[in-house]
Amino acid sequence: MGEKENISAQMITKAKILSEFELLASIPDIGEISAALFIGEIGDLPRFSEHKKVNAFIGIDIRRYHSGKYAGHDHINKRGNPKGRKVLYFIVRNMIRQQKAAPNHIVDCTITSFKKQPHPKKDKVAIIACMNKQLKCIYSMVRNNAKYDYSHKVSMDH
């Protein structure tokens, strides 16, 4: 076994002790390594009082610029944890790639709604929206100690 596999195995072993690991692993397309990396970067998720604070910690909260009559384009803040943001990005990209094999309401509703609007949004905008919904879902699952259930679609706004 190589060094990378050894480190991955150690991370998974340590993460399996935590209750969040089993909850994360219940989400389609989140494997053991992704769950361990997410837990390692986010830490104790219940320490956040609401999902918006998790978004800010990761750095995908929206930054808006307004001055007088000028309203600039919305951008993500990117001030948070860049490694956590990268892990979440790869989780969502994997979900999008595998959406036919493993249905996931986060990808189903977000990608579909962003692509069917009168002016379809760019892929990055849809991915950030999926990342936002994924964080909301994970936050809710951890706070309520509930595994992922496709039939129970969590109400989430754009």
Results as ranks from 00 to 15, higher is better:
153 K>F: 04
118 P>S: 08
111 I>K: 05
46 P>K: 02
108 D>H: 12
116 K>A: 15
60 I>Q: 00
55 N>V: 03
44 D>E: 15
112 T>H: 05
73 H>L: 08
88 L>S: 04
106 I>S: 01
35 A>W: 05
113 S>F: 03
59 G>N: 09
24 L>C: 00
13 T>A: 11
24 L>Y: 04
70 Y>H: 14
74 D>F: 00
102 A>Y: 06
142 V>E: 02
54 V>I: 05
18 L>G: 09
74 D>V: 08
53 K>A: 07
137 C>D: 05
21 F>H: 05
108 D>K: 11
86 K>N: 12
158 H>G: 11
66 H>E: 15
81 N>M: 10
154 V>Y: 06
111 I>T: 11
119 H>N: 15
83 K>C: 11
52 K>M: 06
111 I>Q: 07
113 S>I: 09
132 N>R: 08
5 E>P: 03
41 E>V: 08
30 I>R: 02
33 I>T: 08
61 D>W: 03
62 I>W: 00
51 H>E: 14
4 K>R: 13
29 D>S: 14
48 F>Q: 12
87 V>Y: 01
68 G>K: 03
143 R>W: 03
39 I>L: 10
94 N>G: 13
35 A>D: 10
88 L>E: 01
106 I>Y: 00
32 E>A: 04
141 M>W: 01
139 Y>T: 00
129 A>D: 06
152 H>N: 12
7 I>W: 00
109 C>V: 13
98 Q>D: 06
43 G>S: 09
22 E>Q: 11
41 E>Y: 00
122 K>L: 12
140 S>G: 12
66 H>N: 15
48 F>E: 11
20 E>M: 11
9 A>V: 11
84 G>K: 10
105 H>G: 02
80 G>S: 07
122 K>F: 03
120 P>V: 09
144 N>Y: 00
130 C>F: 02
127 I>L: 01
70 Y>L: 13
17 I>P: 03
140 S>P: 07
86 K>E: 12
97 R>C: 02
16 K>I: 01
10 Q>I: 13
96 I>N: 05
81 N>A: 10
65 Y>V: 15
87 V>A: 00
101 A>C: 07
62 I>H: 01
85 R>T: 09
9 A>Q: 14
9 A>P: 09
122 K>Y: 10
143 R>T: 12
156 M>H: 04
76 I>Q: 02
